[in-house]
Design a protein around this nucleic acid. Structure first.
Lengths: 216, 216
DNA sequence: GGCGCGCAACTGTGATCACAACGCCCCCAT
DNA sequence: ATGGGGGCGTTGTGATCACAGTTGCGCGCC
């Protein structure tokens, strides 16, 4: 079995380490749509055998993060426009609810953190760093939704993010964004004001904005 | 490799057959909460080795259908009341949207089929057949939601059903139900009348009703 | 120069094995 | 009678292998 533990770092299983690493890369848009992944290739890259590689990949397939061809090959998905629209609608549905549940618990410390993250987005965006933009944007949303105290709902929202990861990378590539998302400011303002309808609208608008440039 | 194909029945992979069989059993409430499953046990039951059994189980864990203990053991989940409430809220969120999207496409043939299924629920319920009740009830909902033409959203709703499967079995056991769900009739009536607000309310009520008896 | 065709390398699948860790149960001491 | 400790059986993990299907590339033919 070889036991490739380098020193005494982690007690977590190898397939779990693999899964986490790949999941993060996909969600942050490090992989382009249609990118192929092989068991032996993953195994080589992460210095494990096919077995844990297979488990990590199949788990990501189960979550919709990867596409499984009829012959068993896995790759990042190339989503149809209809699928993208549906996933955006799901994001809106779930995230509006999460934001609404977070609102009563949103104290000033949270709003400060959101403003800090939003400032980081502004820095990242001028460097044309697609991965950094996606990562920081998701961090903004997750920070807010964590306050909702609804783990199952948040997990489901993250699954949608995961499915959209490669597509968002491609989307960002053809998009000449030059300023941080406008609706984030509206979200923060609605949080400060305790304005629930305004918050719902702002979140819905922020989530659906990216879609519009693709369909249009 | 032994190739256990009995005659020439299926070309589908063994782990996929396993996955489908277990998923159906869990979703229909054939397994009680806390039921333990072992790789070698599953392999013995379905006449395969540990490898496909492991894949099927890990996939179900990824979907939240099974619980993975810290030591790697898998079992059906024993949900906390908070978790149940959250999953019910998710059902309401997703299914209200699915029903709303199905409404404009709901023709008479669909309504007839829903009424037929609803009649079947009435038959099943007098036999105190928990599995049959859950299966037919889900068939009622799925038949309606299929018209929404929103596969990703439907898949997410099914994932929630899957997570609730064992709990719904336990719920049904302690519940002395004697008649078919009242709100199904309201759903059908709202569909006939093209009444969208009424439909949303009826679906939300139907989905949340089961929860109330647990919390109460 | 373009178009098939066939072969070789590659990929996923499932079986099997070695190993370590966990759990359970029985036995003994108090 | 009861509580704790030790040992054995069971469980998951990861590596490896044989095999079959697929891919794709290069060679030869038209």
């Amino acid at each position: 079995m070889m036991m490739t533990t380098r020193s005494s770092e982690q007690t977590t299983a190898a397939h779990d380490r693999l899964y986490r690493a790949l999941r993060t890369r996909i969600m942050h848009g490090e992989l382009a749509p249609g990118q192929a992944l092989t068991l032996r290739g993953i195994g080589r890259d992460y210095d494990v055998s096919m077995t844990p590689a297979r488990e990590a990949l199949r788990r990501l397939v189960a979550e919709g993060a990867l596409f499984l061809s009829s012959s068993g090959r896995v790759s990042t998905p190339e989503l149809s426009n209809e699928r993208i629209e549906e996933l955006a609608a799901l994001r809106a549905l779930l995230e509006v609810e999460l934001a609404s549940r977070a609102l009563p618990r949103a104290h000033m410390a949270l709003i400060d953190r959101l403003q800090t993250i939003n400032a980081t987005i502004g820095e990242v965006v001028v460097n044309r760093d697609a991965v950094g933009y996606i990562r920081t944007n998701l961090e903004f949303h997750r920070t807010l939704y964590l306050r909702a105290q609804a783990p199952a709902m948040l997990a489901m929202a993250e699954t949608v993010w995961l499915q959209l990861g490669p597509t968002m990378r491609a989307l960002y590539g053809r998009l000449r964004r030059t300023d941080p998302p406008h609706y984030h400011k509206l979200i923060i303002a609605a949080l400060k004001a305790g304005d629930e309808p305004g918050l719902r609208l702002a979140v819905r608008s922020d989530v659906t904005q990216g879609l519009r440039m693709l369909a249009g």
